[in-house]
């Protein structure tokens, strides 16, 4: 995969990136104010057009699938699913936490705040052949601090797509129709129903 579009809307950051022949040619990263719906498609279109690319020319689309249930996560996933099918190109998925952790090449715990002293987190070391040290999940901050005291904690979103590409830290989506975000947690309604 040398020419691909990356989309991540799983947090309040709207992230769009284009790699063309293995070189980054477009990057857009913007803190949204619940307006991913307004900006997502225009930004994606700008990304393709300013890179001189038509959809079917892409080797694939890489989409961040969360974790979390931020409303935005569904938008990126839906657009990625539609385009992969309509343009007949492969779809790849990656944890948003892996994207975050790619900012560093040292062992890092990437975290997305989930309130009540809990986070969605994953641990990565991109200097290793198998970078994922802790699978994305819902953890208490205390557990992470005690388990990985020596690691850097990272809560900012500043991915390095060249590192992601080198490590091939993504997974090909076998059934595009079935792809959903990685919510990690059940909805409140499902939990209550399960408990009662």
């Amino acid at each position: 995969m040398k020419t691909f579009l990356t989309i991540d809307t799983a947090t309040d950051i709207l992230y769009v990136h284009v790699m063309k022949d293995g070189r980054p040619v477009f990057e857009h990263q913007e803190k949204g104010h619940k307006d991913h719906a307004v900006k997502l498609l225009p930004t994606l279109i700008q990304a393709l057009e300013s890179s001189g690319l038509k959809g079917p020319e892409l080797d694939g689309i890489l989409v961040g699938v969360g974790p979390g249930s931020y409303t935005g996560v569904r938008m990126g996933v839906v657009v990625a699913k539609m385009w992969a099918k309509e343009w007949d190109i492969p779809l790849f998925k990656i944890s948003t936490l892996a994207l975050m952790a790619s900012a560093k090449t040292t062992p890092t715990v990437a975290m997305i705040d989930a309130r009540n002293q809990h986070v969605f987190a994953g641990a990565y070391d991109f200097s290793r052949p198998e970078p994922c040290l802790l699978k994305p999940g819902y953890y208490s901050r205390l557990f992470l601090a005690e388990t990985y005291p020596e690691m850097d904690a990272l809560e900012t979103f500043n991915p390095n797509l060249e590192i992601i590409l080198n490590a091939q830290a993504y997974e090909k989506v076998k059934s595009i129709d079935d792809l959903t975000p990685d919510y990690v947690r059940k909805t409140q309604a499902e939990k209550e129903r399960h408990d009662s």
Binding site: A37, L40, L41, G55, M75, V78, V79, M82, W83, E86
Partner: peptide, 9 residues
């Protein structure tokens, strides 16, 4: 978003 993606594609 699905409709927009389809229309653009």
């Amino acid at each position: 978003n699905a409709a927009k993606a389809f229309a653009y594609a």
